Computed example of a mutant assay.
Amino acid sequence: MKSGMIEKEGFAALVLRLRSEGISDLDLLTAVEQTPRSAFVPAPFAEDAYTSRTIPIDCGSFMEGADLTLRLLHRLQVKPGQRVLEIGTGSGFTAAVIARLAERVLTIDRYRTLATAAQQRMDALGLSNVVVRQADGSNGMPGEGTFDRIFVTAAFPSMPRFYAEQLTHGGSMVAPLMISDDACMMVRLTKTGSRFEREDLFPVPYLPIMPNVAAAL
């Protein structure tokens, strides 16, 4: 089967699964359709691009299954004109989708290999409103102003209250939080004044966030 047909059929199957969960955000689904996911996965896993399977990528990292990725982006609720910070670029797929919804995306990863490859994919897709950097995301990005949305894909050991200063009033952050030694919960934190309102979403399989830049990779 030709790759274009695999892409279309994979996306169609994903849409059906998402609709069964009550996710039918047309803007989000259009952004995903415009961002060929198979271009972000290693070639041997191209046929799994739109499945719920976790896909290994370079540097010991992984891509979440398509279903989980879309569930998280649906909860992030990105709107036109917003500035978004993503901690954990990975393949760059989520940043590319967000870029089709937001005004500007700053995405960072501790691995140079991943950041470089993600930037190349953004360039190939003509997404000029995405900035990819290699950086330590354990404390966010102080000095970059405030963001309307922050999306994190590595788990914090406790509530990341230092992020409150990096969110606009009414802004929100979707991030994993370790709730025990071996359990992780995705939470949405909405800024009200100088504090967060917390909403627990669902368990997720993320690993604890690792500080410092991985200079050798």
Rank of each mutant, 00 (worst) to 15 (best):
D27G: 06
A183N: 15
L114C: 04
S38N: 11
Q77M: 03
G140L: 13
V187L: 10
T153Q: 10
I55Q: 08
P160E: 03
L26Y: 12
I23N: 06
A115K: 10
R133K: 14
Y206A: 06
S172W: 00
V152S: 00
L76C: 03
S38V: 07
T69Y: 00
S194M: 08
L201P: 08
I23M: 15
A155R: 02
I98D: 01
A118R: 03
E86I: 03
H74Y: 09
L189I: 07
P36G: 05
G88S: 06
A155I: 01
D123S: 13
D182F: 13
T153A: 12
G145N: 07
R198K: 13
N129S: 05
V105K: 03
V130T: 05
S172Y: 02
A12E: 15
L177C: 13
Y206E: 10
H169Q: 13
T94R: 03
L72I: 09
T168L: 11
F151C: 01
M185A: 09
D148Q: 01
A46N: 00
A214K: 15
M186Q: 09
I87Y: 11
D136E: 05
A49P: 06
Q82N: 02
T35C: 14
A43Q: 10
L217P: 05
L106R: 01
L217C: 05
D182M: 12
R188P: 00
K191I: 01
R104Y: 00
M185C: 12
K191V: 01
R53G: 00
A12Q: 05
S138G: 15
R188V: 00
Q120Y: 04
R83F: 01
L68I: 02
V213Y: 02
E165L: 01
E64N: 10
R75E: 15
A135V: 08
V187H: 05
L177I: 05
Y111L: 08
S138K: 11
